[in-house]
């Protein structure tokens, strides 16, 4: 598989940001109550990820090591704010729905994580591809969790009723638990279990520490 394409496909399962790199988890919880918000957040995050990786990659040779974190954060935050302002001016309806997520995107460890891990060391082209791949991996998880939560919690998908609730004369008793954030955790946990049961090379042995632990040590 050509290098470029593998950059996009690797983060889908093998190096998935949420289930493998443990990045971007915070936002995966609040926005997955419904499939529509999950889709919007996915689109927003993927765009920000690609743009910020591109900009940081362009500047990478001139960012001094000691201030690199704050420079990256400043660039990302400014980008998100400008996108939000532009949307409020030109796509008002859409921005109303997305403004809530703006704060979530700025602090999203995924955007900063990929900037630090990849965009700072690689040219613009590969950085954009890597960003796209990670954005897609993130979106995949978000869409899966969002679909499950909306389907089991309200019996609908994107607002279209699929399982007719008891209240409307059907058979389906909506699972109130799905409305709560802990449900997202539980679903992701089960998803990770399923992924690792099939792709067994991802399973952890008892002696293994997570990447985060290794950094701290």
């Amino acid at each position: 598989m050509p290098k470029g394409l593998s950059r996009i496909t690797a983060p889908l399962i093998g190096q998935n940001p949420i289930t493998r790199q443990i990045l971007g988890v915070c936002s995966a919880l609040a926005v997955t109550t419904g499939l529509d918000t999950a889709l919007m957040m996915s689109a927003a995050l993927t765009s920000v990820l690609c743009l910020s990786s591109a900009i940081i990659s362009l500047l990478r040779n001139h960012i001094p090591h000691v201030i690199r974190l704050i420079v990256q954060i400043t660039i990302i935050a400014s980008l998100v704010i400008v996108i939000d302002e532009l949307m409020q001016a030109f796509a008002f309806e859409l921005s109303r729905a997305l403004s809530v997520f703006v704060g979530l995107i700025v602090t999203n460890c995924l955007v900063l994580g990929r900037a630090e891990a990849f965009a700072m060391r690689n040219p613009v082209g590969p950085s954009i591809l890597d960003a796209l791949g990670n954005g897609l991996g993130y979106s995949l998880i978000l869409i899966l969790v969002g679909s499950i939560r909306e389907l089991l919690g309200q019996g609908s998908l994107l607002g279209v009723v699929v399982l007719v609730p008891v209240a409307d004369g059907g058979w389906f008793e909506p699972l109130g638990l799905m409305q709560l954030a802990p449900a997202a955790f539980i679903i992701i946990g089960l998803l990770v279990w399923a992924i690792r049961s099939y792709w067994t090379d991802q399973a952890e042995t008892t002696a293994q520490a997570t990447p985060g632990e290794q950094v701290a040590r």
Binding site: A184, I188, G189, V192
Partner: peptide
């Protein structure tokens, strides 16, 4: 189960 060890169990416990 091997697939559940580590991260998956962490998510479930957090939930």
């Amino acid at each position: 189960p091997a697939g559940m060890r580590g991260l998956a169990s962490a998510f479930l416990v957090t939930g």
